[in-house]
Structures are given as C-alpha cells and as structure tokens.
Amino acid sequence: MFLKLKPSFYLLFLPLALWMLLFLVLPYTRVFIQSFYTIDDFGVLQPALSFDSYKRFFTKELYYFTLFKTFGLSAVVTAIALIVSIPLAYYIAFKATKNKTLLYTLIILPLWVSYIVRAYAWKIILGEEGILNSFLQFIGFIDSPISALLYSDLAVVIGMVHIYTPFVLMPIYTSFEQIPTSLVEASKDLGANRFITFFKVVLPLSLPGIITGGTFAFVLSLGDFLAPNLLGGSNTLFISNIFQNMFGTSNDKPLGSAIGIVLLVVVLFVLDMSSRAEKRYSSLNSDRT
C-alpha cells in the first residue's frame, strides 16, 4: 500500500510517524503490557502474564467503587457545566447584537488562563479565612466562618465546573450560531412561543454541540487529579488519584497500569459513543433542513 507513494511522502511523513510511534504508541503499549506484570516485595516489576491486577481492580470495592464515584462526580460537573453554558451561549448567539466577537473572545479567554491559577483562585475564595467567608462575616450574614467550604467534594465540583465550563460553552455556542435564523422565525410564525421554539427547534438542532461539550467536561473531570488534590477533603478520592498513587506513593505499577487501561477503555468508549451520537444528530439535522 505504501509502495505506490512517492519518496517525498516518506520524507514528509516519516518524522511524524516515528515520533508518534516512539513517544505515543509505544508508551501506551507499555502500559498495557505492564498491567499484566507482577511486583516483588520491594516494588520491582517482574515480567509475567498475570491477571491479578485486573482481578483486584474488579473485586476490591476501593477500586471499582471509586471509579463509580468518579463517574458520578464527573457527571455532576458535566450537568452543571451544561446548565450553566446553555443560557450564556444562547444569549451571545441570539440576543447579543453588538460586540459578539468580543463576547465570544471573552468566553474562550479562560481556556487560555492557567489551570493552576483557576484552581488556586478557588482555594483563596473558599478557605476558612478566605474571601467568601470574610465577606459574609463582613456584611454580617454569618458570625463564624463556614468551614465546610474548602477541602470537600463540593469545592472540587465547583472548581471543576469553573475550569471546564469554557470547554462546554464553545461547541454549544458554535452550534447555536449554525442554526439558520429563518428556522427560528418560521417556528415563531407557526405560532410556537419562545419556550416551545427553544425546546423543539433550537435545542435539538444544537445537540451535536451539547454532546461535544458534555463529553469534554466529562472526560476532563474523569482524568483530573490536581483539583481533588488541591481542593478536596478527607473524603475526596478520584480514580485518577488512586491511579497517580500507584505510580507515586503506592508504587504498584501493574495495578496502576490496569487502572490506566480501564480508564483508557472507558474514555475511548465515551468518546466513541459521543462521536456516534453527534453524527446521528447532525445527520438528522441535515435531513430536516
């Protein structure tokens, strides 16, 4: 198959192919192979074909339950990010007449601002002596600081929603933009009120964008280990924390690799489902229009 191609192709393509093979494909393959290894008393890897790590993952509540819990929290983050994104995207797409580009630029700006800065901001806002608590005390709303704010699952969810909302906003806005105004007008002409128009016309047409955005938020939260570290409390444990633990503090690489492979399969599954759904809805749309 490659034989027909001209030498110039190889010249252009070879560096890329080699780089990807060495630094991307082989590393992932290594994780896969490593997940079947065992370790000795001192944590040194022993080549083997053992399913122990997978067995442990699926039989120990610690691992599979944490995975489920992470799913749950990621789903919450995704849902809130979607709920928060839709009105703003709608406003910019349909209501804002002037400064549209400026507004759009403003919603993608946070994407460019350091992740760590955004996580950190919540730390100083939610802390016991933090800005929110001292503000509430200042205006006399509370007498003593609320201590449950920072270092809790709630703080992690708030932080993640904040960090990942722009990822959701962008595709939703783009799909709103692509809806022909004539369709919306037609719906109104046919007597539908704005609610009906929104739920029956605008929302279905923007489903591909909503799916893309939701997938981003879900997958990104699933793999985040920093926000739980920085904002989480004694109860916070995400699957990526255990995963990171296995390579750092626990030093159990086979189990870590097995967790990695499970996570990888889950993420690929989610991505595949989402791209299928997206295609289905966009083709539905193109049939209708």
């Binding site: 120990k60 509540e61 610690l62 819990k69 109860n235 444990l237 255990i242 503090t249 626990s250 159990d252």
Partner: peptide, 19 residues
C-alpha cells in the same frame, strides 16, 4: 514495612471510605 502494598491499600480504603 514488608507488606507496604497492603498498607497502602488500607490507607487508600480509609481515604475513599470503602471496603
């Protein structure tokens, strides 16, 4: 600690609040 792996697992279980 010879059984460090197990110690770590217990500690993670405490943190995760799981069995």
């Amino acid at each position: 600690v010879k059984n460090r792996k197990r110690y770590n697992e217990i500690w993670n279980e405490v943190k995760g609040g799981t069995k």
